[in-house]
């Protein structure tokens, strides 16, 4: 539950900081710089697997994380209920596929995934990724993590992996909740793709999982940006806000025709490219382009985060 679980387990002699107590970063008492090279042999290096497991446990046990996943799952529920109680939507109005929901419940998931792309998903990712390092620093637990012989690079990797797992679970929450509520409230049958061809519900589910995978990949770049911003500050809210603002700014820039040369380089540029997964045959080009672009962002901001975090004086 608390940040100290893993620190305490690995290092029983470490003092447990309590979350309520002001941790007083910046105080002279704490002004000892903790380096990531403890004397070898004195402590067992925890395996990366157990580090990741405890990171995930901590992440998904947090009320905040659970609340965000629940809020994401509520999007399709709201859409489905509204469509259910209101009159038919004329085609061509509102988000794509909205008019199809009453004919086929699986479109609830597609519509919900569509509307959550510009804001809701980046919002939750910003909170998780911005919190990675700065959150520990803000609570004063970062230096305990580094006293434990985990190594800064490994800590960074584990933190990023935790954020990546959230990137996978967030779109999945939308997709599964959407498919579930659609199945409950509406008839489910063969799904018409954008090309007009029909696919059976089981293949439609596969395509939905592919869309979730596409969105997860889309969010990995943003996570890397959030991780880097998180190493810059001890105030987690600052890193979260900066990450979210960046995702909005990037989307705004993507709309300006004057900046056409820049568009292919924006990490949000391919966020809506998952439409190609709803065509027959599936267009994989946009999936590949997006993956390449996000890999570039991960490499650049991962390297920046490394440079910053390894040379950082950890005071809190």
């Amino acid at each position: 539950m608390s940040h100290s679980d893993r620190t305490a387990a690995q290092e029983p002699e470490a003092q447990e900081p309590s979350a309520q107590e002001p941790n007083g970063h910046g105080q002279a008492v704490h002004r000892l710089t903790v380096r990531d090279s403890p004397t070898p042999g004195t402590r067992r290096r925890p395996s990366s697997g157990s580090l990741l497991a405890s990171e995930l446990k901590q992440l998904f046990r947090r009320r905040r994380t659970q609340a965000m996943l629940l809020a994401l799952a509520a999007i399709p529920v709201v859409i489905a209920v509204v469509v259910r109680v209101s009159s038919a939507v004329p085609p061509g109005r509102g988000p794509a596929f909205l008019d199809r929901i009453s004919q086929n419940g699986l479109f609830v998931a597609v519509t919900a995934m569509l509307v959550s792309v510009p804001l809701f998903l980046p919002l939750t990712i910003g909170v998780v990724a911005g919190d990675t390092i700065a959150g520990e620093a803000g609570l004063g637990t970062l230096r305990y993590l580094l006293v434990a012989p985990a190594g800064r690079v490994r800590l960074l990797l584990v933190k990023y992996a935790g954020a990546a797992v959230f990137c996978i679970s967030a779109p999945l929450a939308v997709a599964l909740a959407g498919a579930g509520i659609g199945w409950v409230l509406f008839p489910v049958g063969p799904v018409a793709l954008l090309s007009g061809d029909l696919v059976e519900p089981d293949e439609a589910l596969v395509r939905m999982l592919l869309i979730a995978a596409y969105q997860a990949v889309s969010l990995l770049g943003l996570s890397a940006i959030g991780l880097f911003l998180s190493t810059l500050t001890d105030v987690p809210v600052g890193a979260m806000a900066a990450t979210i603002v960046l995702s909005v700014v990037s989307q705004v820039l993507d709309q300006l025709p004057q900046l056409e040369w820049l568009h292919p380089w924006l990490f949000t540029h391919n966020w809506f490219g998952f439409a190609d997964l709803l065509r027959q045959p599936i267009g994989w080009d946009s999936f590949g382009d997006n993956a390449l672009l996000q890999a570039g962002y991960i490499a650049v901001f991962g390297a920046l985060a490394y440079g910053r975090f390894v040379s950082k004086d950890v005071l809190s």
Partner: peptide, 29 residues
């Protein structure tokens, strides 16, 4: 021929003497 629009698609399919035009945006054929 599939014209790939944003979140939509316009199709023209011809087989023999049958020609179908489909627009996914307003779901008309």
């Amino acid at each position: 021929i599939q014209v790939m629009d944003r979140m939509a698609e316009r199709d023209a399919v011809r087989q023999g003497n049958e020609l179908w035009l489909y627009n996914s945006k307003d779901n008309t054929a």
